[in-house]
Design a protein around this nucleic acid. Sequence first.
DNA 1: CTCCCGATAT
DNA 2: ATATCAGGAG
Length: 212
Amino acid sequence: MKKPEVKKMLSILKKEFPEPKSALNFSNPLELLIATILSAQSTDKIINEVTKELFRKYKKPEDYIKVPITQLEKDIKKTGFFHNKSKSLRGCCEKLINDFNGKVPDNLEDLVTLPGVGRKTANCVLGNYFGKPGIVVDTHVKRLSQRLGLTEQENPDKIEFDLMEIIPKKEWTDFSNRLILLGRKYCIARKPKCEECPLQKICPSAFNVEKK
DNA sequence: CTCCCGATAT
DNA sequence: ATATCAGGAG
């Protein structure tokens, strides 16, 4: 996709989703961090269901450490990968307490040192809580970037850097959220609704996907 | 590259 | 039955 089309794409996205907000429910940085870690290979619907109960029980990092690990596993079971995720949550909270004064760090270098936190999760927290621009390459952003011809890459980190070149920095977070919304509403993985998609005219793969 | 791993749509 | 869902670690 060439530069003029990228501009067109950004303006269409802006019109379609004027106020792109995270679909995850949270009321502080710790909650956003936890919700985002849990969101791996799970739907936001399930996550919000689970965190509703979870955040009522667990308020501070200490709360995740004082319960038996089996209890924490039970509390997040529905998100899948519960064995790994419970260990991540616990390790994460221990590190927050030991190395970061109990606070969620506000920069990428520190965030990615936390267990269960990669660039996707870190950028999500930076953008959606701290107001620091970041391209969030989740499964939607990956799929849509490829379909829209914004990248030829497979590796999420490489896709992130490709998008950083194409998209103005100020819009990194909103752009990510808008692609995610578009991916959920129209550009669905299995059965994309190209005929309803606002980007249909400028999307290189609109017809192919539909006729397949 | 493989494993983790429950819930839902197709 | 299988693909896919707001990925990350070994």
